[in-house]
Design a protein around this nucleic acid. Structure first.
Lengths: 345, 345
DNA sequence: TTGTACGCGTTATCAA
DNA sequence: TTGATAACGCGTACAA
């Protein structure tokens, strides 16, 4: 379209006011008489004015952009987090520039530079590659979700409580031996707390237990094979005992459940299973799987609240800089479905 | 931070060049001597310059922003599409402003206005609410994916072929009666073609068939109940016949499969099932479900290519405006798993 | 309540 | 190969 955009100048000329007055119509309408507001309103209609927020950013420095770096959207947990974050537009008004980093450190660093160039007001980081001390050095409001967070504000699920809840539920079924299978994740990772929760409860109540920390594979088929082998081992090792198995996520729990059903034609009464995440597969499984659900809506909302506070603080005259990072913890919710029914005696 | 941002002016002063030269260093470095490039490069390092793309937008009009309106990220199909679109950043360089509209027409209209205010260069629309004739009226490059697309460019799966493939596979298993269950979707919807594909093949080869177009529910539990009832009906109506059932998506197929297994303890040989989408549940099911996979990566790439063409066209001097919309079709891929094994005779 | 004048940080145009 | 100057469209002191 060759036709130039309508600007405040055009409206000003047309109405006889100054550009300033037109600007005020948008940012402080009460400072105009109702009459003049009307005049301008009709002029805007007539000339078909379209606002230009890019120019406004340059003038007042507020982009209302928030950058998001997320590993991928393939995993349900991430896409649901993003889903909930995007929904906050209606209450906070921030626009989201989204990048998926696929856990490539240098790529993610490049994305952050790009975001910075667009003068974003803050960032939400879900990817794990860039250490929080580096994130902090960018000197803009940052909130991380479920990752290493020593030097930046963050929101995490109460993973320890999640582990405790899952373990307690398994114990209450009357299982003789409790087993937790997980990858050998680093201690700084938030989800390591689930392992601690399991371990602590077992020890506290003197419950026989086994911790299997091992490579859980990188593809679905790999994981499936590994879990099948693990099941065989468990099956022979704990014959005649009721086994309560705590899997690190619902996909794994579902695989385990399927292997059991393929072997026995049903879920035997001496197997109790619980997953983690409350992802769709846990309810869509052949037998609805008990799980620990993260309150993703609350996590997203808390992250935005934290970020918003930091951003508003920063817009003030005397920015109380270098405040301590805030770490918010959201409790999980135990979801008791059909794979943890009490043992029939 | 009180410290002002470093600008081209600062670099210019520091190096003795003009702002113009600094700008050229970024946009046309070859027009400077290598020596001077070096001087500027070190100055940038020294002063720790951070580029400001907002100012650049205002000056040259190119935002490199693309707006995305997507119904939600809860459904795997949508999150995977977004996943693939975001990945194109590395090849096209566009930044994505993402909104989820939840199928609220007025809300989505508001989002579009917001996007327009940020001078986005184009839009990708996945939501269904706003008619394409209205989209076209915005006069910016637009590509829709899998929705009504009469007046705008679009990318769609070859749904007709998908229906044909699914139906043919069911027929090849040796099923006596073919059944397609679907919601009563409008004829303009791209996925209506699947229904036509099913119908055409059945008629062409004189295969006994039944089309069940009915309300399929709005929640998982509702759908589950409806499909269970439907299964009972089918079970009694076609006793002794081998039934080939084509479900409109993998979630439905999985529900149907689970009902069958709960009833018979296994997938009876007289039931053949196929879904659509190749979503995770189809491979995670108790028996891996045959399905028709959309090539989501290709869909996303095609959409970006189409959009990019339109955008580049528009940046030219004489914009060949009002070209006819292009509609691109991506073939689906049949995925033959374990729920469509040939009938044993 | 309204207007003047300048600034935001870059690019485009023209000239040298 | 480089520079001066004017946009780009809006916000904001400051003045009236």
């Amino acid at each position: 379209m060759g036709k130039k955009n309508i600007t405040f100048s055009d409206i000003a000329k047309y109405t006889g006011f100054s550009k300033t007055t037109i600007s005020r119509y948008f940012n402080n309408p009460d400072s105009l008489t109702l009459e003049n507001q009307q005049i301008i309103a009709t002029a805007l209609e007539k000339l078909n004015y379209k606002e230009n927020k890019v120019a406004r950013i340059l003038a007042n420095g507020k982009t209302e952009f928030i950058g998001i770096i997320i590993p991928n959207l393939y995993m349900h947990y991430y896409s649901e987090i993003l889903n909930q974050i995007l929904k906050t537009y209606d209450s906070f008004g921030y626009k989201f520039l989204v990048f998926t980093g696929d856990d490539h450190e240098s790529t993610e660093r490049k994305y952050i530079q790009e975001l910075l160039a667009y003068k974003i007001e803050g960032m939400i980081i879900l990817s794990h590659t860039i250490p929080s001390i580096e994130l902090a050095s960018y000197n803009i409001p940052i909130v991380t979700i479920e990752r290493e967070d020593q030097y930046v504000s963050s929101v995490n699920t109460d993973n320890y409580m999640g582990g405790v809840q899952a373990t307690s539920l398994l114990a209450k079924t009357g299982a003789d031996i409790l087993i937790h299978i997980n990858a050998d994740i680093p201690k700084q990772t938030p989800s390591y707390e689930r392992i601690r929760g399991f371990s602590d409860i077992c020890k506290e109540y003197n419950i026989p237990h086994e911790m299997i920390l091992t490579d859980t594979g990188h593809t679905y088929d790999e994981t499936s094979r590994i879990l099948k082998d693990l099941l065989e081992t468990i099956d022979t090792k704990y014959k005649r005992k009721t086994k309560g198995i705590f899997l690190p996520n619902d996909t794994f729990a579902n695989i385990m459940l399927n292997h059991l059903i393929q072997k026995y034609g049903c879920l035997p009464d001496d197997y109790k299973i619980i997953g983690f995440d409350d992802s769709p597969v846990s309810r869509e499984a052949i037998i609805p799987i008990s799980t620990v659900g993260q309150q993703i809506d609350k996590i997203a909302l808390s992250a935005m609240e934290l970020l918003n506070e930091q951003i508003e603080e920063r817009h003030k005259r005397k920015p109380t800089l270098s405040v301590e990072p805030t770490h918010k913890i959201i409790p999980p919710i135990l979801i008791n479905r059909k794979t943890t029914l009490p043992v029939e005696r």
